[in-house]
Amino acid sequence: MSRDRALWVLPASLFAALLLGLLPLPEALVPLRPYWLALVLAYWVLEEPGHAGLGLAFLVGLLADLAFGTLLGEQALRLTILAFILQRFRARVRFFPLSQQAFTIGALLLNDRIVVAALQLALGKPLPPALSWFAPALGMLLWPPLFLLLDSLRLRSWRRT
């Protein structure tokens, strides 16, 4: 019971990731923006699979589509694919060292870039800028500190309740 009450960190972190995605950046840096929602959702799918799964990924994706003004269902599809792959390999990925987890997350973010490019191509839109292919590397570098931050918040709130 007390563990369930400690899950305020999950919606708060997803909301913070949504805000980070909306944060204005200089035009030159926009393609390098890390996919914050994917990073935060990946943490929760790995650490709290009973509370974070495909349904949450889809709902968060729909909210992100509305917030970012993207095609309705685009982010929902992207986050659901990411959550599905992570759920499938959770037993292995969860016990990787943090550096190896970072490479795995980088590969998942690269897969996300491929999904975005395929969607853009299918819709007849121009492909994302070449600089956007470096965003997964940035997400990979951000994974260890983000993981440690979310883990400390989750465990601290769980101990207090």
Rank of each mutant, 00 (worst) to 15 (best):
R3W: 08
R5P: 00
R5D: 02
L7S: 00
L7H: 08
F15K: 00
L18S: 03
P24T: 13
L29M: 07
V30R: 15
P31V: 02
L32Q: 00
R33S: 10
Y35S: 14
V40G: 02
A42Y: 10
Y43R: 06
V45S: 13
V45T: 12
L46D: 12
G50K: 11
G53D: 13
L54V: 05
A57F: 07
V60F: 02
A64V: 12
D65W: 01
A67R: 14
L72A: 14
G73K: 07
E74S: 12
Q75Y: 06
Q75I: 04
T80V: 13
Q87S: 02
R88M: 09
R94D: 03
S99Y: 08
S99W: 14
T104W: 13
G106R: 07
L108V: 11
L109H: 03
I114Y: 03
V115S: 08
V115R: 03
V116A: 14
A118M: 08
L119S: 01
G124H: 06
K125Y: 12
P126I: 07
L127I: 09
S132K: 07
A135I: 08
M140Q: 12
M140H: 00
L142A: 00
W143G: 04
P144W: 05
F147L: 02
L150M: 05
L150T: 01
L150E: 04
S152V: 12
L153W: 14
L155T: 14
